Simulated scan of single mutants.
Amino acid sequence: MFYNNALDSQELMQRIANDLIDSYDEELELEIEDREVDDIGAPTAADKLARQQYFKELFRLQGELVKLQDWVQHSREKVVILFEGRDAAGKGGVIKRITQRLNPRVARVAALPAPNDRERTQWYFQRYVAHLPAAGEIVLFDRSWYNRAGVERVMGFCSDDEYEEFFRTVPEFEKMLVRSGIRLVKYWFSITDEEQHLRFLGRIHDPLKQWKLSPMDLESRVRWEAYTKAKETMLERTHIPEAPWWVVQAVDKKKARLNCIAHLLAQMPYQEVPHPAVVLPDRVRNPEYLRQPVPASMYVPEVY
């Protein structure tokens, strides 16, 4: 354990508490619609200023993501973004911020569960192909076909032959995607051993996030070094010019989100698509129309 010598229990609990506060900030972000964030409180003036700057930059980048979405629709582009990394590395957080303001019919998330018995007999990439975008769509994979290079390898869910076949196939598979017109971007979210340990402790102490801790997550702590070796092999053997890997330093979750979104935008030659001015038409009022009353029993009780 990291904190037996370096930190006493009080200091450890304070760090866990700080991490929980940060996680609640994440949920607050998802509710804030007002671009004016000057009234958001924080423990210190410096913290308040940092949060204000973060929110403002996040909203600015999300405005650019809306422009990217319009460009993808208008130009009928096809975009695939892969998010990989250790458990609790922050992949889900950045995916939420990317899709938060976008049309779910244009930008959708693919988070596939473990393959079922039938899928295990298919060509390995088959179930992922079904989620690839059509023209005018963006697909964000919350974990992807690289499961075979990571969790399946470390946990023994694939054979050595299947593992090697994956590495023989995946470069050609991704080259095919790119040649077909798909823009493919691959991100690896990098956190330290200590940071993952702290985030797992935070989840244990947060009843709203305990569901995120699976037996597989806990086992990943035991096999940290095996996952490190698997990651190094994966990056070495699948970092190709047509689809390079990009590593996001993710110990600071807020900075990681902003850096990832800014980098993603820089990978796309998008332009603002002009739209005609929107004019709200007058409502047509028919004197013969009578609105029928709704029975009181159908209303949701106003508890709040």
Rank of each mutant, 00 (worst) to 15 (best):
D161R: 15
A149P: 11
L68A: 02
D193C: 03
K91N: 08
L177E: 01
R86N: 12
L65N: 08
G85K: 10
R120V: 12
N116M: 07
R76M: 09
S180N: 12
E137H: 06
F173K: 10
R97Q: 15
V72L: 07
F157S: 09
Y128G: 07
G85S: 14
E172C: 03
E77L: 00
D160I: 10
I182V: 15
A134V: 12
P115G: 02
D87I: 14
W145I: 08
K56N: 15
R148Q: 06
R97W: 03
K186D: 07
D70T: 02
E84N: 12
K78L: 00
R97F: 03
R86S: 11
R179P: 00
Y163E: 06
E152S: 05
K67C: 11
S144H: 06
V109S: 03
T192M: 05
F167S: 13
Y187H: 08
R97K: 15
E64T: 01
A114L: 08
A134R: 14
D142C: 10
N116Y: 12
P115Q: 00
V185W: 02
E119D: 11
R148W: 04
E162Y: 01
V170Q: 05
A135T: 02
R86G: 13
R105S: 08
P113Y: 04
A130H: 03
F59W: 08
E162D: 11
G92Q: 13
D160Y: 04
S190D: 15
Y146S: 06
L82E: 02
W123M: 10
Y187C: 12
P115V: 04
G90W: 09
R60P: 04
A114I: 09
E137Y: 05
L68S: 01
A110S: 15
R143G: 11
Y187M: 02
H131T: 07
T192Y: 02
F166R: 08
Q73Y: 00
R105G: 15
L58S: 09
T121V: 09
R143L: 02
Y163P: 14
R118D: 11
E162M: 09
I191G: 04
R60H: 12
V151S: 03
A149Q: 09
N147R: 05
V185E: 02
E172H: 04
R97I: 05
